[in-house]
């Protein structure tokens, strides 16, 4: 279980997340909703351990009781945490296959990996050339997100965070990605989706929904909270602890 207590975080001295307390249970699908600038991506990056995000002294961040705070992002990834990026940068000269070969560090032989990638690409509906091209270099939104999803499938994380896996993709791609992740990710994995997409939420049937606003938790609930929020917008939701 990922447990967050009194998490206050900022970048360059600017506080973005204020005193969040949340827990994400294994085997469940969680959705984080919120208007632009509400701190959703910062939350995802803070869990992954982006070096420029500074947590307050009082903040607690643990995965299965293990303290993550002093672990660098690569160490957290080795504890089986994965983050799918909203706008991943191109890396010239490095293909997803090479990247994963280095990431797996000999844990999977290159031939097995090669075949696995081809199977996964076919399943998610991505042309094979994208496996050997420079990652994200000149890729469309859909191609980027599919490559992110494929990496999640190969690395088989126990905690997977998807930061807007739907943006920049068409409806068909959203459906394929959602179905792909539901099939490919472990049933026991903790899944956190940051999204704006009603379509994705409908496909995911989330077990829990969290609404962030201005860096605070505005509401928590089940699938119906998502539906209500999408219909009525974020305007009606009061931020708890304010006013």
């Amino acid at each position: 279980m990922l447990s967050i207590r009194n998490l206050t975080a900022g970048i360059d001295g600017k506080e973005i997340l204020h005193d969040l307390t949340l827990s994400f249970e294994p085997g469940k699908t969680h959705v984080v909703l919120g208007p632009n600038g509400s701190g959703k991506s910062t939350l995802a990056a803070a869990i992954m351990g982006r070096p420029d995000i500074i947590l307050s002294e009082a903040s607690e961040l643990t995965l299965d009781r293990e303290d993550l705070r002093n672990l660098s992002a690569d160490k957290r990834a080795k504890l089986s945490i994965f983050l799918s990026f909203q706008s991943p940068l191109p890396i010239p000269g490095v293909s997803v296959e090479e990247l994963l070969r280095v990431a797996l560090d000999g844990k999977k032989d290159p031939v097995t990996l090669h075949h696995e990638l081809h199977t996964l690409a076919k399943e998610i509906g991505l042309a094979e050339e994208f496996l050997s091209r420079s990652i994200h270099d000149g890729f469309s939104g859909g191609e980027r997100k599919k490559i992110e999803a494929i990496q999640a499938a190969v690395l088989a994380p126990s905690l997977a965070i998807f930061d807007e896996i739907d943006t920049g993709t068409d409806t068909d791609a959203v459906k394929r990605i959602a179905e792909f992740l539901q099939t490919r990710l472990s049933q026991d994995a903790t899944k956190i989706y940051i999204t704006h997409s009603p379509k994705l939420i409908e496909l995911l049937h989330p077990d829990s929904v969290i609404i962030l606003k201005d860096g605070r938790i505005a509401a928590e609930g089940g699938h119906d909270l998502a539906t209500k929020t999408i219909e009525e917008g974020f305007g009606g939701i009061e931020v708890r602890g304010e006013k």
Binding site: P51, F82, I91
Partner: peptide
């Protein structure tokens, strides 16, 4: 730095 963080999130050290 953003690329280093991306690779770190895949378990690749600096």
């Amino acid at each position: 730095e953003e690329k280093l963080f991306y690779l770190a999130s895949r378990g690749i050290g600096t």
